[in-house]
Design a protein around this nucleic acid. Structure first.
Lengths: 151, 151
DNA sequence: CAACATTCAATGTATAGACATATATTTGCA
DNA sequence: TGCAAATATATGTCTATACATTGAATGTTG
């Protein structure tokens, strides 16, 4: 469906650029909804999932809060607090870094890895299902345009 | 900058499709940050701004909570509460609908219109500045791809 | 090495998103 | 008409974002 119909906009957009911004935000929100629902049965949010993905990518090397923040999609989400939530669920371990006591070493646990294997399979499966409307060539184009959009 | 650099991803993405999803979410979050900062001096959030835009579009016809929800980018954001916030700032009026007492008629005030004229000029100006990296043709392509992405 | 600046993480506070539930009104139909 | 179903909005609760501030540890420099 075209973005105008999705948001029942009666007037035309002022420009393709403005429309693209609205379309971007709408599409992101649309996908966020799906992702949130997929993850809900596992008791983790998208950003918690994202943190676990970063930790798996580095495993068995530990990350610090700083590293996580740099790699997270949402730079302002509060890595400290999200890490605390995940620790309570025993999905990661947090240890004081021996070299620098300001830092904390954060490592995904076995249980975290198991849960992530399951959820990432589910997420990736859903992505393929939802996004198979795009060809690989089109996905590539979309990536280029988004990169270019950010200047 | 390419998305891999933005989030300091060392490994390649599994597929262009997966990369496109990450890119979409990252770009949306990136723009949301700018928008939030632009609106901050005016004391309104993006979604409050969005509601005012919808109301201006319908003005002088009133909207209901239901109408707003249908047209908002984020279907789950709580129109009731956002309307309440905007009412407190005297940017809109909320009246019981005479035909159907379940509903409320919501209309943007003069003061709301004035503030929106100012903020939307600012927002649109910023969009042109940020997104002039894309040609009109590319913006069109991006719109088509996003529409197609949602299936 | 002492004083000051910087870095890293945690926390306080306000706003918003996600979702279930409550409450009032209207509609539809037996 | 009466009563259940549907509709419109509001609210409670938990989580997350935005941003300022705090506090501890480390770096830097005279």
């Amino acid at each position: 469906m075209k973005i105008e119909e999705e948001i029942k906009q009666n007037k035309p957009f002022k420009s393709e650029h403005q429309k693209a911004v609205v379309n971007l935000m709408f599409t992101a929100s649309w996908w966020a909804q799906h992702a949130t629902r997929l993850l809900r049965p596992y008791g983790i949010s998208q950003e918690q999932y994202n943190i676990l993905r970063i930790l798996r990518g580095m495993h068995p090397e530990p990350a610090t809060i700083k590293t996580l923040t740099e790699r997270m999609l949402d730079k302002n989400s509060n890595a400290s607090r999200l890490v605390e939530k995940l620790k309570q669920k025993k999905l990661l371990d947090r240890l004081e870094c021996p070299n620098d006591r300001r830092r904390v070493d954060i490592t995904i646990t076995e249980s975290g890895l198991r849960m992530l294997d399951e959820t990432s399979l589910l997420m990736e499966g859903n992505m393929s299902t939802y996004f198979n409307t795009l060809t690989v060539e089109e996905a590539k184009q979309l990536n280029d345009l988004l990169d270019k959009m950010r200047g």
